[in-house]
Amino acid sequence: MKFERKDILGIQDLSVNEINLILETAESFLEISTRPIKKVPALRGKTIINLFYEASTRTRTSFEIAGKRLSADTINISSSTSSVVKGETLIDTARNLEAMNPDVIVIRHSAAGAPHLLARLVKQSIINAGDGAHEHPTQALLDMMTIKEHKGKFSGLKVAIIGDIEHSRVARSNIYGLSKMGANVVLAGPATMLPRDIEQMGVKVFPHVEDAITKADVVMMLRIQLERQKQNIFPSLREYSQRFSLNRNNITLAKKDVIVMHPGPINRGVEISPDIADDPSFSVILDQVNKGIAVRMALLYLLTGGSE
């Protein structure tokens, strides 16, 4: 199968075949990061711009390392040190970057749809590194790669996603992806953090975390965005932690070989108790980070082509 896309904007419009191709390609890239010389010449002479309008450690570093291990030149732009502070619009910034002839622009933006706007506007390949509460496709792909490695398949798996679904692009991308691949996705979280009509995405919603994680193969905890407390979405961290955290007690409800995932950054003791997050018999959180580089290498490799 050939990969025909110009951009990676979301999981929603990827086919099962495309997801499989990306995951298989990424699996081949894993080995490069274990070599004594962690670099291959595949993208020599290509330029990748990381345009980040929101804070990020993992995703931005991961994209930068992925590009560098493929021998591409990577440039990072964060909004705080760019002309954005002088009032330049996204469209103007994009046109100016386009004039510098990069090959790929990776963008993270707080507005849903910003990468799609860019993709229509410029001829370069656009990769969505997170747009508002919409999608975060590379995170979902690395999550799927981690699940595939540990479970060997997707069909029939029970995957519980717990927390602030409403504001989570990670949740949305994973729901699209995992459902497509045949997994059975269930959600739990406070009513104020569950979008209305979320069942239309083909998922089951539970009010209590215990119901969602019972017999689960995978438990994915979402970060509670602490700044949301001001919006009166949840009364206190302590109450949230008592009702919705993953801990020693409730994890026993899940399957014995359950894996625990978290997109990071984690709030220790809020959505996940530290002893679970650090327990290698459950937690694959750092494994996810490791897979992230391979997934991003695969996407950069598949997207950058010649002119013919």
Partner: peptide, 14 residues
Amino acid sequence: ISASKKKPHLGETK
């Protein structure tokens, strides 16, 4: 590799 539009399938190096 950089001139070809469609990327060849990548296998694992072991």
